[in-house]
Simulated scan of single mutants.
Amino acid sequence: MKKRTPERTPEQQALLEQLKQVAQGLSETFAPFCEVVVHDLLDPKHAILAIHNNLSGRQVGDPATELGLARIADPEYPQVIANYANQFADGRQAKSTSIGIKDSTGGYVAALCMNVDLTLFRSLQNVLGQFGSVDAGAAMKESLDPAGADAIRARIDQFAARLATTPRSLKAEDRRALLRELKEAGFMEVRRAMEIVALHLGVSRATVYSYAK
């Protein structure tokens, strides 16, 4: 059955179209670290109108979030909620900002949401902390403790940080280089290492096996 498009005034339609352009511009400026989403609050069951730099795995046509529903229910709900802690479905930490858009009647029409993947920036923070350390001997040491899942994820984050990108944005050739590095460092001997790597890169285990060959 074809989805029925809710009726909109010319003003509301114009706001949505302009917001889509703003979202595209922001996404191209902050790629690949920032997911930018346009929510059509006039159609809450199919609210996602556009999504750029997809980090959350959602799709166009997915329903409104709790925040979106709150705006629909209350025109007095804050228009700007900035830099609040968030989390992607796979556990990655994010920083989010949500901006509500009203029409001339004072009701919410749409929302522009930005979700920043903090993985790279926290890795860079660790790298900078090590770089600024006065204990050169400690900075050059590698841990001899048995590697676990957290150690694998941290190594992947560090690899991506060296390339100024995120693990999920690594190109195929970079992933192959990463797998070689993990193997040489002994991380691939960890139980379920392939699964851990696949989840952190956002690819299938079969893909990781192909890179590891």
Rank of each mutant, 00 (worst) to 15 (best):
M1D: 13
T5R: 12
T9K: 11
T9V: 10
P10Q: 14
P10T: 12
E11Y: 07
L26W: 06
V36C: 03
L42K: 01
H46F: 07
A47S: 09
N53G: 06
L55W: 00
R58G: 05
V60R: 12
V60W: 04
V60S: 07
V60D: 09
G68F: 01
L69G: 10
R71P: 00
R71Y: 02
I72D: 05
D74C: 09
D74T: 11
Y77E: 08
P78K: 05
I81F: 06
A85E: 15
A85T: 13
A85Q: 14
N86Y: 12
R92D: 01
I99S: 01
G100D: 00
G100L: 00
D103A: 05
T105K: 13
N115V: 02
N115T: 05
V116M: 07
D117C: 07
L120F: 11
L120Q: 03
S123I: 07
S123Y: 03
S123M: 06
N126D: 14
K141Q: 12
S143V: 08
D145S: 15
A147E: 06
A149L: 10
D150C: 10
I152K: 01
I152N: 00
R162W: 13
A164I: 14
A164T: 14
T166K: 00
R168E: 12
R168F: 09
K171Q: 13
E181A: 15
K183C: 12
A185R: 06
F187V: 02
A193F: 06
A193N: 07
M194A: 14
V197W: 01
V208G: 02
Y209T: 09
